[in-house]
């Protein structure tokens, strides 16, 4: 018999397609274990703050800078917060009543943020990361963690975190200020207003 040419995708990984399993997210306990093995020579002191006012109290920054850092941390959390398939999975790591349903899974409450100031050749930088409180089965790791599971070490009230974990969300203090938002999207609004019935999609 002649072999048939197959016209469809040969295999699709169904586990990957299930939105309740979110395979792209690393299991948090694995990330924590990996991070804690990394050693402490790269640790950097940071400020752990629970609110804008806490930030003003603990650092020498003004209200505007602390607000900006808080805003950035909130926005950052949309991209990088830990996600779980089910509420149970999330609560197993972050505690009862500490998780919320999001667009594609469950995420723990953000309990604060950390800030760290640095300077490079172009000028001032502020690193900001969102903080979560880990309450899972790894007892020695319980406490503040970053979104990727990196633990924040508490040494008599001073906090330290692996420098590498601080790299991504760094923003420049001055220099490239965002001037505006919302320069795209108006046409969609105008077309909806003009159409008799609401359109579902901007594609076709």
């Amino acid at each position: 018999m002649m072999e048939r040419r197959v016209k469809r995708s040969q295999t699709i990984d169904l586990g990957r397609m299930r939105k309740q399993f979110l395979p792209a997210t690393k299991p948090l306990s694995v990330a924590i274990a990996a991070a804690s093995l990394a050693g402490c020579s790269d640790d950097q002191e940071v400020f752990v703050v629970s609110s804008v006012y806490d930030c003003i109290n603990q650092t020498n920054w003004d209200m505007a800078t602390c607000e900006a850092a808080y805003q950035k941390a909130m926005e950052e959390s949309e991209y990088s917060e830990p996600r779980f398939a089910t509420r149970q999975d999330c609560e197993a790591e972050f505690g009862f009543n500490s998780c919320n349903e999001e667009f594609n899974g469950y995420s723990p409450d953000m309990v604060g943020f950390l800030v760290e100031e640095g300077i490079d050749e172009v000028g001032d930088l502020i690193a900001y990361n969102t903080l979560y409180r880990y309450k899972g089965r790894h007892k020695s790791l319980r406490g503040y963690v970053l979104a990727d599971g990196t633990p924040v070490l508490n040494q008599r009230g001073r906090y330290f975190v692996n420098k590498k974990a601080l790299l991504t969300p760094k923003i420049r203090k001055a220099n490239t200020k965002t001037l505006s938002r919302g320069g795209f999207g108006r046409q969609a609004v105008a077309k909806v207003a003009a159409a008799r019935s609401a359109s579902r999609s901007w594609g076709g």
Binding site: T178, L179, G182, G185
Partner: peptide
Amino acid sequence: FVEDIGLNEA
């Protein structure tokens, strides 16, 4: 979201 895109000084 398209509406959230911003433009910076650069």
